[in-house]
């Protein structure tokens, strides 16, 4: 380790590293190294904490120490007091980010102080502010080097925290076309027998979309599944568990789910009701015989019945 630690500090730090995420208590440490003097260990721990090599948590009434990763060390160590507390809290929130309100309640610091710290941290390029799709009005903070989680950005479907409706629509249409193509034989009057097993799974749809370069963004199978679910709700495709045919085990397809999709032929949206004015009438609720709006003098009808 390049930094100038005393042997005892180094020892403690290494033990913390070994303990990993579970952390290390003082009792653990003195169990492993019974010969280290209590006082010296305490001084070492304090200096480690002060310089940001380790951090301390309260777990069930005990102090637990965790080592920080090397690349994180210097940064927090260079910070002082409140800034360090704020930085650590933000770091703990990982790639989810933390809202300023929550930051306040967690650190017990005054709002003005937090604001000052955040400004300082932002200037040092240690943290950044982001927006979440879930709460577009909230300002979240996270470490500079992290990419916000899918929860926060909303995944590939969001551009600038807004759902990219056109993009979604285009992709869904493509998916539908592909599934439709796979669901019926070329001869339109024919249908597949029930042993037919080439109905596409989400993974296959994804492969098609990626191969055809329909999307610039890399989409996961889960992303595609979302689109396919939408198609299911639109009544355009149906989902069912494929018959598992032993001889047909295709190696190059990673089928982590057995759901496959079959298209329903597009039916025209039509309804006899909407062919006459009353079916689309905005004032139908007020329309009564003898009322101010009534079928006898109805203008919609005049237009409709005008030859």
């Amino acid at each position: 380790m390049a930094t100038n630690l005393t042997p005892l500090e180094e020892l403690f730090y290494q033990e913390c590293l070994k303990a990993g995420n579970n952390g290390l208590t003082y009792t653990d440490f003195s169990g492993i190294h019974p010969d280290s003097p209590v006082m010296d260990t305490a001084i070492a721990m304090n200096s480690l904490l002060g310089r940001g090599f380790i951090e301390v948590f309260q777990v069930r009434g005990e102090q637990v120490y965790k080592a920080l990763k090397k690349e994180e060390i210097g940064k927090a160590g260079a910070l002082q007091g409140e800034e360090q507390v704020v930085y650590n809290t933000i770091r703990a929130s990982g790639n989810e980010g933390i809202w300023t309100k929550h930051l306040k309640s967690k650190t017990n610091l005054h709002e003005a102080v937090i604001k000052r710290c955040l400004r300082a941290l932002e200037q040092k390029a240690l943290v950044k502010a982001i927006k979440s799709v879930k709460h577009p009005t909230r300002k979240l903070y996270m470490l500079m080097e992290l990419t916000p989680s899918v929860e926060v950005t909303g995944g590939p479907w969001f551009t600038d925290q807004e759902l990219d409706v056109d993009f979604v629509e285009q992709l869904t249409n493509q998916c539908y076309k592909y599934i439709l193509m796979k669901s019926f034989p070329r001869d339109a009057s024919c249908i597949f027998t029930s042993t037919h097993s080439a109905y596409p799974s989400a993974a296959m749809v994804r492969k098609y979309i990626m191969d055809k370069r329909i999307s610039q963004v890399d989409l996961s199978v889960d992303d595609i599944t979302m689109l396919l679910d939408v198609l299911v709700y639109d009544g355009k495709v149906e989902r069912f568990i494929a018959l598992v045919d032993e001889d047909w085990d295709d190696e190059d397809m990673d089928t982590d789910s057995d759901w496959v999709y079959k298209a329903v032929r597009d039916k025209k949206a039509e309804s006899a009701w909407q062919d006459c004015p009353c079916g689309v009438c905005p004032v139908a609720d007020f329309c009564t015989e003898g009322g101010p709006v009534n079928p006898a003098g109805c203008n919609y009808y005049n237009k409709w019945l005008d030859f």
Binding site: V230, V232, Y233, D234, A269, S271
Partner: peptide
Amino acid sequence: NLIQGIVSARFGAPYVRIMNM
């Protein structure tokens, strides 16, 4: 199907999506 037809003819496909869901 009939109800879906009505909803879709009157309001459009996205409404059917919500209903089906």
